[in-house]
């Protein structure tokens, strides 16, 4: 639609014809501009429509009482969006740095890692990625790229441990 049709312009001999040629070209460009901007705007709106309307909602959720969470112990927390999170206490300072909350999503290509008790490691079945209990990469593609298991933000308030997780997820395979 933005193609500008050739207009028959007679051979330019004097100023009058030159002016008419210029006007014809100007109107052709104006038409093209009008079409491109208007339909382009329509297309841009369509693009905005297809882009996600809002980011996935997140919230701070209660995990456990800090006092009852012994150093060295860990628990598996299931977020409302279905994500399983390994929460562990590593130190006894009493602040939020004592804790780590590891995502089970492999940083390489997004598969789910699982805990292998006998090997004391997290294992990703997609490309044999291996992580130690603190989430640091041991071997496989994550090790080569230096990617650790992602951590969820944690917070302590009034002696209670909170975690920031997603609220909406897909139904899980068990349902």
């Amino acid at each position: 639609m933005s193609e500008h049709p050739e207009t028959p312009v007679p051979p330019q001999e004097d100023g009058e014809l030159d002016r008419r040629g210029f006007l014809a070209r100007a109107s052709a460009y104006a038409m093209g501009a009008g079409l491109v901007t208007s339909y382009g705007c329509f297309a841009a709106m369509a693009g905005r429509y297809l882009y996600p309307a809002r980011p996935a909602p997140k919230a701070w959720m209660y995990v456990a009482e800090v006092a009852g969470f012994g150093v060295g112990s860990s628990l598996t927390y299931t977020a409302p969006d279905g994500a399983t999170v390994a929460v562990a206490r590593q130190k006894s300072a009493g602040n939020v740095d004592d804790f780590i909350a590891l995502s089970s999503t492999c940083p390489h290509l997004g598969c789910k890692v699982h805990w292998e008790g006998q090997n004391q490691r997290f294992f990703c079945p997609c490309h044999n990625g291996v992580f130690d209990p603190s989430g640091a990469p041991v071997s496989g593609p994550p090790f080569e790229a230096g990617q650790s298991l992602p951590r969820f933000p944690l917070r302590i308030e009034g002696g209670l441990l909170y975690i920031e997780v997603g609220l909406e997820g897909l139904p899980t395979g068990e349902e």
């Binding site: 709106m45 369509a46 905005r48 309307a53 809002r54």
Partner: peptide
């Protein structure tokens, strides 16, 4: 109600 310009399209 939610998608941008959804009502328009």
């Amino acid at each position: 109600d939610e998608a941008a310009y959804g009502w328009y399209f």
